[in-house]
């Protein structure tokens, strides 16, 4: 219930108007949205029980490692049942396959639709979505870890909450199924990071400082 309460209100995209190039405009709009979502995500992380008790080094490691996974849980959740198999980055930023291809994000589109279909088939509840998002951050296999015991306790707390929630619904296999979906999320996030790094390096798409810093941490 704490995670449900601290779940941030979805952001709206601010349409970029610095260029006449339509696909570049879409990209710049998306990158601006991502940068603002990152800011919100960092504030959200601090509110997850146990996160602020971690050392600053470990907080940084977990975020640098798990930020894209946590953001993509939101995109995949919003994209469920979207008409035309669109990716719903924001209520006012929905990209279909053709738009993603035109902006150089065909690979990201395919990976994210796959993740969205997986979540849709699992019929996730809002409780499961917020827990999955927090677990993606906690389970990021960040290295080096400053205080492994504290990170472990942070992970255990989330795992316990998930198990308690699922046992209250008398769903004995759900917790395991959710955990088994984490590798696909990791894989999807890796492809997303590569896609944005490619855009930046090969097409010189300018990125905001925070987004660039977080992408660099993964490069």
């Amino acid at each position: 219930s704490h995670l449900l309460l601290t779940e941030p209100t979805p952001l709206a995209a601010n349409q970029d108007d610095s260029t006449n190039d339509g696909s570049l405009r879409t990209l710049l709009t998306l990158c601006d949205l991502l940068n603002r979502e990152l800011l919100v995500l960092i504030g959200w992380a601090k509110q997850i029980p146990g996160f602020s008790g971690l050392s600053l080094v470990d907080q940084m490691s977990l975020l640098q490692s798990g930020w894209m996974e946590a953001l993509l849980v939101g995109v995949a959740w919003r994209s469920q049942g979207a008409p035309g198999d669109e990716l719903v980055f924001a209520g006012n930023l929905r990209l279909d396959e053709a738009q993603c291809r035109a902006t150089g994000l065909a690979d990201l589109y395919e990976a994210l639709r796959h993740l969205t279909a997986k979540y849709q088939a699992m019929n996730l509840s809002p409780e499961e979505v917020v827990t999955l998002k927090a677990m993606a951050l906690a389970n990021s296999d960040a290295d080096p870890v400053d205080c492994p015991d504290s990170v472990q306790r942070f992970q255990d707390g989330l795992h316990e909450a998930l198990q308690e929630y699922e046992s209250s619904r008398r769903e004995q296999h759900r917790a395991g199924r959710l955990l088994m979906s984490l590798p696909l999320l990791r894989q999807t996030a890796d492809r997303a990071v590569q896609a944005f790094l490619r855009l930046h390096r090969h097409r010189c798409v300018p990125l905001h400082k925070l987004l660039l810093e977080m992408l660099d941490a993964k490069a």
Partner: peptide
């Protein structure tokens, strides 16, 4: 740490 100064600053801010 210098490389990740924005994240560092954001985490140090109280809210």
């Amino acid at each position: 740490k210098e490389k990740h100064k924005i994240l560092h600053q954001l985490l140090q801010n109280s809210t």
